[in-house]
Simulated scan of single mutants.
Amino acid sequence: MKKISLLMLIMLLAVSASGGYGYYEYVYNADEEEEDTGDEPVSSSGSKPIARITPSNPKIQINETVSFSGADSTDSDSDDLTYLWSFEDDSKQYEGVEIDRNYPDKGEFLVTLVVTDSTGLSDEIETTVLVVEDYHDEQNGNVNDNNGNEDIDIPVNNGVISFRIEYSLQSASISPFEEDAVTLRLTDADGVIVDEENGVGEGDGAWSYTTDDLSSTGNYVFTIESESGSMDFDIIIDVKY
């Protein structure tokens, strides 16, 4: 009650001194000052970006060019992003959302992408690229009772998709009464026999395998072993990656 009476007294004094204008001016200035001093809060989640590389874990042929992209990287704050690439076989760093890379050597190589937003927050992701080279070989010769057998080494590395051996056998005995026959055998890198066929005579054939058929990697051996007589052979080997 005392506060209300005091307020009314101040109002009456202000009106009598300025004809009413001073009071309204005071109220206006007070309201204006209250609006000016109010600070609006700034909303920012401060989330770091999420880096992504495409393609992920690609497999390419030797001397093939692969295009890496960071375009699938995201930022929940919609900040501008920068992209920095590093490659295991290169001491330099490269900027840009996309980059092409050529690999002249076989092997597995690390690729690193660092994505940074405009506030300095960053995320890093890695992938590997497997560089392979298809293997092709052609062999010919002869096996007979004297020289026994012929072993052909076949390198089979990680990432093999298919493996095919084509053979053509021609009887080479002088006597028409002599039967020419060989044993064909494929042994894996652990010394385990993958396939074997006995009593193979003149003619053509092929053995084909997929990844599921091959339990190890390393040097496989294809053997042509004489059983009787003399046999000429032509062998074509293809290993696909």
Rank of each mutant, 00 (worst) to 15 (best):
T82L: 02
S228A: 10
E166K: 14
N219F: 07
T211Q: 10
E126R: 13
D213P: 08
I174E: 12
D153L: 14
D195S: 13
D105S: 15
L110G: 03
D39N: 12
N144M: 05
E88H: 04
S122Q: 09
N57F: 09
D137M: 10
E227A: 00
V160A: 05
L9I: 13
G199P: 08
E133V: 08
E33V: 12
S76Q: 07
T112A: 08
N147H: 00
E88S: 13
D188V: 04
E227R: 07
L169Y: 03
E126D: 14
F233M: 03
S43W: 10
W85F: 01
E178I: 15
L9T: 15
G46W: 03
V115A: 01
D190I: 07
G159K: 05
D238Q: 10
K106F: 04
I236G: 06
V15S: 10
G229M: 00
T127H: 01
I50S: 13
E178L: 09
M1R: 11
F177L: 11
N149W: 06
E34M: 12
N198T: 14
I165A: 04
T217F: 03
K2R: 13
F109T: 08
L169K: 07
D195R: 15
I99H: 05
N157Q: 14
N198V: 12
S43L: 15
T128C: 02
E95P: 06
D145Y: 07
D234T: 14
E34F: 08
E95H: 09
E196R: 15
G205Q: 08
E88Y: 06
T127I: 08
P41S: 02
I50L: 11
S43G: 03
F87E: 05
